[in-house]
C-alpha cells in the first residue's frame, strides 16, 4: 500500500508539472501546423506568467490575471506575426528576440513596479486559482485503490489544469475534423494551394497565432498564479523549449503531445523523488541525468534513430504571393 500511495503522489506531481508543458506544446502545435515556427514559446510563457501575477497582485482577481497573461502572450504573438507574416522576416530570429524581450522586461518592469528584486508580491489564496474538489472526492477517499486515484490524482487540481486536459481532445477535433483545421494544416504544408483557392494565408496564420497566444497565455498564468503564488525571475526555466522538444517528439500531433508532455513531466517529478535515494549497483542517480533525458530523447528522435520527425513542410518560410 505504501508503494501505491507513493506512485499516486508521483503521478499527481507529474500531472502538475506537465500542465504548463501541455498548454505550451499545444500552443506551438497550432502555430507550427500553420507554418510559423515559434521558438518564442519560452518568452511567451514567461511574459504571460509575469502579466498574470502583476495583474492579480494589483487587482486581486485571478481572472483579470488570466486575461492579462493572455493579453501579454497576444501582444508577443502580434510582434511575431508582424515580423514573420507581414515583414517576411526570419521566424527563428524573431522568436529568439521575443525570448530575450520577456527575460529582460519582466525582471526590469518587476523591479521598477514592485521593488522586490524582480519578484511580484506574494499572492494570497483568493488571488490565485485554487484547487477544485470534484464531487464526492472526500467521500471516496478511503475506498481502496480507486478512491485514492480519484481524490488525489483526478480531483483537486485548479481550473487551468482541467482546461489543459480538455484542450487536447478539442485540438484533435479542431485540427482533424473541422474545415478550419484542414485549412490550418494546409497553410503549413502548401500555402500556395490555399492562396490559389482564394483564401487568405495571412488571415489563417494570424488566427493560428491568436490560438497559440491564448493557450500559452493560460500556461504562463498557470505557472505564476496557480502553481506558485507569484512571479519570480525566469520562472519558465526552459519549459518553453521543453514544450518545443515535446512537440517535435510528438510529431506535431495532439494526443502524442499529451503523452510526451506527461512523460517529460514524469521525468521532472521523478527527479525530485530520486534525490538522495541509493540504488543497488548504480548508487545515487545524479539529478542531472534525469534533467537531461527529455533533451537527449528529442535529439535521438531528431536524428531519426527512433522514427522520423517531419515538420510541416512550409514551417519557417514566409509566404510571398507571386509578383
Amino acid at each position: 500500500m505504501h508503494y501505491y500511495t507513493d506512485l499516486i503522489l508521483i503521478l499527481d506531481s507529474t500531472v502538475r508539472l506537465a500542465i504548463p508543458l501541455i498548454l505550451a506544446c499545444l500552443a506551438g502545435l497550432y502555430s507550427e501546423r500553420a507554418g510559423i515556427v515559434d521558438i518564442g514559446l519560452e518568452g511567451k510563457l514567461l511574459g504571460a506568467a509575469f502579466g498574470a501575477a502583476a495583474m492579480s497582485a494589483v487587482t486581486g482577481s485571478p481572472w483579470l490575471g488570466l486575461l492579462a497573461g493572455i493579453g501579454v502572450a497576444l501582444g508577443m504573438s502580434g510582434i511575431h506575426g508582424l515580423a514573420s507574416i507581414n515583414l517576411k522576416g526570419n521566424q527563428i530570429i524573431s522568436g529568439v528576440a521575443l525570448n530575450f524581450l520577456a527575460a529582460g522586461l519582466t525582471t526590469f518592469l518587476g523591479q521598477s513596479w514592485f521593488h522586490r528584486g524582480g519578484f511580484t508580491p506574494q499572492l494570497s489564496q483568493s488571488q490565485r486559482f485554487g484547487p477544485i474538489s470534484l464531487p464526492y472526492a472526500d467521500q471516496v477517499k478511503d475506498v481502496p485503490i480507486l478512491g485514492g486515484l480519484y481524490s488525489e490524482l483526478i480531483s483537486g487540481h485548479n481550473i487551468l489544469a482541467y482546461v489543459a486536459f480538455i484542450a487536447v481532445p478539442v485540438t484533435a477535433w479542431v485540427l482533424f475534423s473541422t474545415r478550419f483545421g484542414l485549412r490550418l494544416r494546409a497553410v503549413g504544408e502548401n500555402p500556395k494551394a490555399l492562396d490559389t483557392a482564394g483564401m487568405s494565408v495571412t488571415l489563417l496564420r494570424y488566427q493560428a497565432l491568436i490560438i497559440t497566444a491564448v493557450l500559452v497565455g493560460i500556461g504562463g498564468t498557470y505557472l505564476s498564479i496557480a502553481q506558485s503564488a507569484g512571479f519570480n525571475n525566469n520562472m519558465s526555466a526552459g519549459r518553453g523549449y521543453i514544450a518545443l522538444a515535446a512537440l517535435i517528439f510528438a510529431k506535431w500531433k495532439p494526443w502524442p503531445a499529451l503523452a510526451t508532455c506527461l512523460l517529460f513531466g514524469f521525468l521532472d517529478a521523478l527527479q525530485f523523488r530520486l534525490q538522495g535515494i541509493q540504488f543497488p549497483v548504480i548508487g545515487e542517480v545524479p539529478v542531472q541525468a534525469i534533467q537531461v533525458l527529455p533533451y537527449i530523447l528529442t535529439v535521438v528522435l531528431l536524428a531519426g534513430f527512433i522514427g522520423r520527425a517531419v515538420a510541416p513542410k512550409a514551417a519557417g518560410q514566409p509566404y510571398t504571393k507571386e509578383r
Binding site: A83, I93, L98, N99, L101, G104
Partner: peptide, 20 residues
C-alpha cells in the same frame, strides 16, 4: 534601472536588425 534593461535592449536590437 536594473541590468535587465540591457537584456531588453539586446532583444530589441535582435528584433529590429534581425527579424524586422
Amino acid at each position: 534601472i536594473t541590468r535587465e534593461m540591457i537584456v531588453t535592449i539586446q532583444a530589441l536590437v535582435i528584433l529590429f536588425t534581425g527579424a524586422m
